[in-house]
């Protein structure tokens, strides 16, 4: 494999990782602050993508579509937080798993009821379409480059939000001692709704951004959700830094595994056997990565308490 191809694949892994980060960041915040496991986070990705596709079809503006995805998913997040999720904070994880599983059923079939079974259309805006030539002669799609930049900017923004702002202080306080911040007179239920809506908004943004290069359809969020879980296990719960490192690790492992493993097996197998063995192992590579991290650090790379 040429060096250029290798670098291009690394970029692809990075881009995939950044998308995962947008999903994992919300999940890990919600878990860190409220102690809640939210299976329906994948549905919020879908809500964002559908909101974007609807607005894009009505107005033709990609920026409005992106805004709609964030607002739509955050609003959906805030609504389910107030109606359902709020009642689950004090419950055990089993109840949380089941209630959010129920939310998946409602969201998925509800979306199908409203939008029908056919995939929706959402495309890259003309000013972001096509490839650009990077230093060294790599041709790389501008849109994917934009995703990487936006994702890293959002990561930086989240770090600042948590490290420097009043909300951030409350979030950190909530992670270390939930009773304490209530005692300090912080409106805890408002904080919870805010954190949940923030996570939902990020998921919605992820949905809109990938919706433009993939397809906007029911159930699009769940595969991403499960990978986001792997990310959180690797990075450590509650840690934004862990989510970022974990996302990039998973993104790069998945991408590179898909190329390197078949190439490795081709050294001593015939082409199609190598292809299918290599591809089969590649699909398992990120789970093997997760198992390795678990053996070495059961609470994840940056997790405090398990």
């Amino acid at each position: 494999m040429s060096f250029l191809l290798f670098v291009e694949q690394l970029l692809n892994g990075l881009q995939f990782g950044v998308m995962l980060f947008l999903t994992a960041a919300g999940l890990t915040l919600v878990f860190g602050v409220m102690g809640l496991i939210n299976l329906a986070h994948g549905s919020l990705i879908m809500v964002g993508a559908f909101a974007a596709a609807t607005v894009s079809a009505a107005t033709g503006s990609y920026l409005l579509a992106i805004a709609a995805s964030i607002v739509g998913a955050a609003a959906a997040g805030a609504i389910i937080e107030m109606l359902v999720i709020r009642r689950l904070y004090k419950r055990d994880h089993l109840d949380q798993v089941l209630a959010t599983f129920a939310l998946i059923l409602i969201f998925s079939e509800g979306t199908r009821y409203v939008f029908g079974s056919f995939p929706l259309y959402l495309n890259i805006p003309p000013y972001l379409a096509g490839p650009v030539t990077l230093p060294g002669g790599i041709e790389y799609p501008l849109y994917r480059l934009t995703i990487i930049v936006v994702g890293l900017l959002i990561a930086a923004g989240l770090f600042l939000l948590i490290a420097r702002t009043r909300i951030g202080i409350q979030i950190r306080a909530g992670e270390s001692d939930r009773e304490m911040i209530a005692a300090l007179g912080v409106d805890i239920s408002r904080l919870y709704t805010l954190v949940f809506a923030l996570g939902a908004g990020l998921a919605g943004l992820a949905g809109a951004m990938i919706g433009a290069i993939q397809s906007v359809q029911v159930g699009m969020g769940e595969p991403i959700l499960i990978l986001a879980f792997v990310v959180i296990v690797i990075g450590g719960i509650g840690s934004i830094k862990g989510a970022l490192i974990g996302s990039i690790l998973v993104g790069v492992t998945d991408t590179m595994g898909g190329i390197l493993l078949p190439a490795f097996f081709r050294l001593f197998m015939d082409n199609s056997a190598a292809m299918s063995t290599g591809s089969a192992l590649a699909t398992m590579s990120i789970y093997i990565l997760m198992a390795l991290v678990l053996i070495l650090k059961p609470s994840g790379l940056y997790g405090g308490k398990a």
Binding site: M1, S2, L4, L5, E8, Q9, N12, G13, Q15, F16, E139, P141, R144, I210, I213, Q214, S215, M220, P223, T255, G258, I259, P262, M275, S276, S279, A282, T283
Partner: peptide, 19 residues
């Protein structure tokens, strides 16, 4: 190339096609 069933991102495959 064999891709993953249900895969939605083909960046890596496209890079290989190009090369």
């Amino acid at each position: 190339l064999f891709t993953k069933l249900g895969q939605t991102d083909y960046a890596s495959e496209l890079a290989q096609i190009r090369a």
